Amino acid sequence: MNKNQKPSMSKRRATVAAVLCFVAAIAIAGTYTFNDYRKTQKNELAKAEEKAKQDSEAAKETGTSKIKNEDMTSDTDESDSNGTGKDGTTTGSGTTDSGTTGTSGSEGTGTSGSSGQTGTQATAGKSHNINFTEDSYILWPVNGAVIMSYSMDKTVYFQTLDQYKYNPAVIIEGAEGDQVLCGAPGIVKSIDVSAQTGTTVNVDIGNGYELLYGQLKEVPVKVGDYVEAKSVLGYVSQPTKYYSKEGCNVYFEMRKDGQPVNPVEYTADQD
């Protein structure tokens, strides 16, 4: 070998060494990349398994809760429909007392309900015997003279209105603030406010009979209340403009099956 060939061999060896180094570097890099890929895949698989486990447990809890809710709903429906609980205790009743309250509306609204025609009526969960008949008597609501008598067969003179009209009630003189007492046991059917009679309390006393008390104030009772005879229904108020010349009074009307009757015929001091 001559001097010119030695440098060439050295260059070849250097080139081969460089190539080998490059290949080794690529191999090493590939090895690390593959290892990282496997680690990543392993981590992802572990996460997926953990999520699947959590979803499964959540599904079990949801199913259990749903079953419990359905059981509770079933128990409630059974209790509501039968009126008893599972242990046999009464939880409610779908039946009502044989009587009806015959009342509706609210105080001061000017509305009234319809009344039943039976003698026994119920209110506030209790039954009260209200059985007014033709032979029963009523008490006078206030001590005072009769200003205008009941008159449905002929007209009478209304001083304030300056005209003759039929009068379905008895107009009784009273002082402002006097107590107005209930004439017979009954249930408050309505409490109305009208321009003519002011605050008016309607008491159902049974068998189609009703007593109406007008020109009141400070009414302590409410619709649906059971009231005894002599119970305070209110107090004499200032008269409305329809009775301004007659002065303070109590408008006292009695009805049978919705038609006015003379309350004087049912007072206790009649012959």
Rank of each mutant, 00 (worst) to 15 (best):
Q5H: 04
K6Q: 12
P7G: 07
P7W: 05
M9I: 15
M9Y: 11
R12G: 02
R12S: 03
R12I: 06
R12W: 00
R13M: 01
V16Y: 13
V16P: 03
A18V: 00
V19A: 08
V19Q: 08
C21W: 08
F22H: 02
V23C: 08
A24M: 03
A24D: 00
A24W: 00
A25K: 04
I26W: 08
A27K: 05
I28G: 15
T31E: 03
Y32L: 15
N35K: 11
N35Q: 06
Y37V: 04
Y37I: 06
Y37R: 12
K39T: 01
Q41L: 04
Q41P: 04
K42Q: 07
K42C: 01
K42L: 00
K42P: 00
E44F: 02
E44Y: 07
E44W: 00
E44G: 00
L45S: 15
A46L: 09
A46H: 04
K47P: 06
K47Y: 14
A48H: 03
E49I: 05
A52N: 13
A52T: 14
A52C: 11
Q54G: 12
E57R: 01
E57Y: 02
A58S: 07
A58G: 00
A58P: 03
A59H: 13
K60E: 10
K60V: 10
K60T: 10
T62K: 14
T62D: 14
T62I: 12
T62G: 05
G63F: 00
T64Q: 10
T64D: 14
T64C: 07
S65E: 05
S65A: 09
K66G: 02
K68A: 14
N69A: 12
E70A: 14
T73N: 12
S74R: 01
S74H: 03
S74W: 01
S74A: 04
D75Q: 11
T76M: 06
G85E: 08
K86G: 10
K86R: 06
G88T: 05
G88M: 03
T89M: 14
T89F: 14
T90S: 14
G92D: 09
G92Y: 04
S93R: 09
S93N: 13
S93L: 11
T96S: 12
S98F: 09
G99E: 02
G99Y: 02
T100Q: 12
T100M: 05
T101D: 06
G102C: 10
T103I: 07
S104Y: 06
G105D: 01
G108C: 03
G110F: 07
T111C: 04
G113N: 06
G113C: 10
G116E: 13
Q117I: 11
G119P: 05
T120W: 06
Q121V: 13
Q121P: 09
Q121W: 05
Q121E: 10
A124V: 01
N129S: 15
N129E: 10
N129W: 05
N129D: 14
I130V: 12
F132W: 09
F132T: 10
E134C: 01
S136A: 07
S136T: 04
Y137P: 05
I138Q: 08
I138C: 14
I138S: 12
L139S: 15
W140M: 14
W140K: 13
W140H: 09
